[in-house]
Design a protein around this nucleic acid. Structure first.
Lengths: 238, 238
DNA sequence: TCAAAAGTGTTACTTGTACACCCATGT
DNA sequence: ACATGGGTGTACAAGTAACACTTTTGA
């Protein structure tokens, strides 16, 4: 016997990003209930015995938002032996899962969501957006997970620019796209040149509609055409 | 009780890349013993109860090669419920770990090694390099892991060019670097322009030594200076 | 002297960057 | 009229790609 081999529970946790009207990145947090206290945390779940981690993450996202298909990306397994050793966390796991849990490792996922999309959670009573700079202290290593997720979402944009449109409304102005890109990228581009470049892409389709009630020349709305993008996948910055 | 939550073993598996003298990417495989039969597989191990996955991967790499510090990168958790359901695999796990193992999830790591480096395994009797196109059928989902690892190592090079030097001898010619880069990158560059570009980088240090016994003009050897690189991290391709 | 590859130089072309200029709209 | 941002054009700088030319070495 080798009793020092780990036999453990495995969970998934999802960091869902949104982009708000003040040009801030937000993430979705849920409430957990511990005795009378409420505490917020990342949405997540233990995985079932016949479930792959990708499926568990899809399930968590669906239970969280009610949205059928969300983009998602596994980004890291967190397995620090001390990550679930806090007294409150142990107590909460006992209540939530009805069994004593000694150690738990988690597989973290990224996802993206249009911030105006209606959230219809089948599992959580409270689901809220938090600006990423204003995330309070969370249980387990959830703050660490969130910190690392920001770098991952930036890399993701570099590798596949098209996923940025998951964070924007279907109709968007080039300024909106610029502000989102600026929030996600280290590179700073002049907005005029950005405009010229973006509007030159054939997968950015100009619409007839323009902004209303703005105290300056109204900007045109555009939409993103995923099919055209897939054909000639152009990176924003080479 | 919620008996359908997974309680499982967790392992790490390491895909160690090398670059051989015929300009092929190779990976390190080890032998596992099952009854009288031998079978090759990826090096890996269950993780200990007080061990993080990163530490387990470092341990596996050290037991595999005898090298103290190898670069490594976690790249994906593989958790298909069927990944360890093969009869031979179940039998082997029983023998190897002296206990019945129902399900096992694994966290895969990438590593890189100079192919001429002496391998001093403290754990495995047989450790061999296999060209990546000639890897035979392996147990568990190890072939799948290897297939996905290739894409990951390519991404890694894009994000951090300097790790490419882990695969080259300390002294190398620009042609060697070119051939390695060509094997790892989709982009095809003219070798003359590649030469000009590489030799312009201040972290590529020309040595006094040149090739011997070649039937053409002898190429200069260069070395890579990590300190200079870190100061002004230049991506190869912007 | 030829083949093969090293190493340098030249040129054309593409792309990025900075910024000037006009346009449209609400106050 | 003016402030604000939309949208286009232009000019220069920087980087990339193609390729010619010279050098070095062994066969």
């Amino acid at each position: 016997m080798s009793p020092n081999f780990i036999h453990t529970y495995v969970s998934v946790d999802c960091v869902v990003f949104g982009f708000d009207h003040e040009n801030r990145l937000n993430i979705l947090l849920v409430e957990r209930h511990l005795d009378q206290e409420k505490q917020i945390k990342l949405p997540g779940s233990l995985i079932f015995s016949d479930e792959d981690v990708d499926d568990a993450a899809e399930r968590v996202l669906h239970e969280l938002t009610g949205i059928k298909k969300m983009v998602l990306k596994q980004f890291k397994c967190f397995a620090d032996p001390m990550r679930a050793n806090n007294e409150n966390d142990i107590q909460w796991m006992g209540t939530e899962y009805k069994q004593h849990i000694d150690r738990i490792i988690t597989v973290a996922y990224l996802s993206l969501c249009k911030i105006d999309h209606k959230i219809n959670s089948t599992k959580y009573s409270t689901v809220d957006w938090f600006p990423i700079d204003e995330v309070p202290s969370l249980p387990f290593d959830h703050n660490k997970i969130i910190n690392e997720s920001l770098g991952e979402v930036r890399k993701w944009i570099e590798v596949d620019f098209s996923i940025i449109f998951e964070l924007l409304p279907k109709k968007f102005t080039i300024r909106q796209l610029y502000q989102l890109y600026s929030a996600l990228s280290e590179k700073q581009i002049d907005i005029k040149n950005f405009h010229k470049k973006i509007s030159s892409f054939n997968y950015i389709i100009p619409l007839d509609e323009i902004e209303k009630n703005v105290s300056h020349r109204a900007a045109r709305y555009y939409k993103f055409d995923a099919k055209i993008y897939k054909k000639n996948n152009t990176k924003l910055i080479k």
